Structures are given as C-alpha cells and as structure tokens.
Simulated assay, not measured.
Amino acid sequence: MNHTQPTHHQDYREAMQEAARAFLQRHQAEHLGDEQVLFTRAVNHLHLALEVPQYLAENLVGLAYGALRSEGQRLRLDVAASSACTAVLTDPGSGLTFTVPVAVIARHLIDTPARRTLRAVS
C-alpha cells in the first residue's frame, strides 16, 4: 500500500470538512452576534443533509471553524513539540516560539463565566 496517497476515509473527511467550511462562510453574516448558532447549524447541515455521523460532524465543523477563524494568523501550533499539558506555538515569520501551559489556556478561555464553547446543542 502506498502511504503517500490519501485513503478513501481521508478523502471523505476532507470533503466533509470543506463542506462545513463552505457552510460557515455562506452563513456567517446571518450570525454575527452568536457564533454558537452558526456552529450548531453547520453541524446539523452535515448531519442531516450530508448524513455525516453526529460525532464526526461536530469534529469536522470544529476543525473548519478553527481554520476559518485562523486565516491570516501567523502563529501556528507545533503539534510535535506540544504535550498533553503544554501547547507550543511558533511564529514562522519571526522564528519565535511560545510555550503555554494548557491550564492557562483553560483558565482564560474555558473556565471563565463568559466562555464561548462551540459545540452542537439541541
């Protein structure tokens, strides 16, 4: 088996993630004040219209949302250098590296009263 060619599974995931991204782009102006509704609509679209399993639809919409909101950003997550407890961010333009404990990310982005978690809700 040639490991450089994408598998059918990878092709499917990429196509469905692109469908999620296209949906988010098409409908983002309708939800300027509440991205949670946009996220949920995108998950429902993948699940109901394209018959993507719910768990996978949530995952793919999350990935598409992150890619869409990160366009034009220089910082990148260095997955190889990161660990379960530490995120390593790099700036390819400047060559700088930033190490951020996951606990700090959780404290400032998740464990706050005004947190914005994007997940499918009924």
Rank of each mutant, 00 (worst) to 15 (best):
Q36I: 01
L75P: 07
V102H: 02
D78G: 14
L24S: 03
Y65K: 00
T40H: 12
T112Y: 00
Q5C: 05
L56D: 08
A57D: 08
M1K: 10
C85E: 10
Q28V: 04
D111T: 13
L46A: 01
H9A: 15
P6V: 15
L77W: 06
V37N: 00
R13S: 03
A19L: 02
R116F: 03
P53Q: 11
H45G: 05
A22W: 00
I110V: 11
L56Q: 13
L63A: 09
G66R: 10
N2Y: 14
R76M: 09
H3T: 15
R116I: 02
N59Y: 07
V52Q: 11
C85I: 03
T7D: 00
V61G: 02
A49F: 01
Y55V: 11
F39V: 03
L68S: 14
T40R: 13
V43C: 04
F23P: 01
R41Y: 09
A29T: 10
G33I: 00
H47N: 14
Q17R: 10
H31L: 08
A81S: 14
R115Y: 11
A120C: 06
A80N: 13
C85Q: 13
G33Q: 05
T99D: 01
V43K: 06
L68N: 15
A120N: 05
R107E: 15
R21T: 03
A120E: 02
L24C: 04
A114K: 15
T4Q: 03
T4M: 02
I105H: 10
L48M: 07
S122A: 11
H108I: 01
A22H: 04
Q10S: 13
H3K: 08
A49I: 02
V88A: 07
E51I: 06
Y65E: 05
F98E: 04
L96D: 14
L56A: 10
S94E: 09
A67L: 10
T7F: 00
A106L: 12
A15N: 07
L68A: 14
Y55K: 14
L77V: 14
A64W: 04
T117I: 14
R116H: 13
L56F: 02
C85Y: 12
Q28W: 01
A22C: 04
A80D: 13
V100C: 11
L75V: 12
S122L: 01
Q54S: 08
G93S: 11
G93H: 09
T117S: 09
H3A: 08
P53V: 09
L77N: 04
A106G: 05
A84P: 01
L89G: 07
G95Y: 11
I110N: 04
R69C: 13
A84K: 08
E18K: 06
L60S: 05
